[in-house]
Write a protein that binds this DNA or RNA. Structure first.
Lengths: 116, 116
DNA sequence: ATATTATGTCGTATATTTACGACATAAAGT
DNA sequence: ACTTTATGTCGTAAATATACGACATAATAT
């Protein structure tokens, strides 16, 4: 039971952490940027653009898909991945809210001195 | 060598992933929110407010501190933690840029159909 | 029918994260 | 000096994440 004390936190905290985790690997960040750069969806030659094996890329894709950040539709032999912009926009809002909350306080002094 | 192919990605991707990783656990999200809610800094009774052992909380604090998101100053017997709002603002900007880039494209159709 | 091609899934090795008790350290109180 | 109090660090167990080769699957192509 040395993990997952997650239940003890609020739904918002868990949700933000879940999405943050999805972005916590440069490969997944790169995948999202790649999908965003191409107007249409790309098939599995995503792997060709990344310095990782096809298996590993597929794993990262599944993770993003599990969270719903990307969608994948089978089109004959190839699979067509694309961003779920709706969800991404909602997620963006969550992050913005969190950061505004975090950066609004005066917090420490301007230097490094922590004038409590 | 089954890890850390990180070098192969851009500095931006690595940086974003690094910060996202810091936010990838509800405890760390909660810590940041806690520090933001109190106008001044809090000492280690942060642990008292979280459903985790003091050791574990200390570990999370070190992680946030290592990234520079929070600062900790020793004040006699207690340690005073507070947010690094400057860095948080810069990080916020990175996330905003990323999300704008990700949500600007038309991507898929309005439904789930992926019209490639 | 058989080969080719594009993907996903399984198994597995290694690295990292999470969580906590036990001990170390250091300031403040008695 | 000795105890108390607040923290950090170490060691360690268990859970997850990362990475990839080998095999399975299914749709085209020949």
């Amino acid at each position: 039971m040395t993990y997952a004390k997650t239940e003890a936190f609020t739904a918002e905290q868990q949700q933000l952490a879940r999405v943050a985790k999805a972005l916590a690997h440069p490969a997944r960040v790169a995948i999202i940027q790649l999908l965003a750069s191409k107007q249409a969806c790309i098939s599995g030659d995503i792997a060709a653009e990344l310095p990782l094996s096809r298996t590993t890329v597929s794993q990262h894709l599944q993770e993003l898909k599990a969270l719903g950040l990307i969608k994948g539709e089978i089109d004959g032999l190839t699979v067509c991945y694309c961003l779920n912009t709706e969800l991404l926009q909602r997620v963006q809002q969550q992050f913005v809210t969190f950061f505004i909350e975090a950066t609004s306080g005066a917090a420490c002094g301007p230097d490094d001195a922590c004038a409590c």
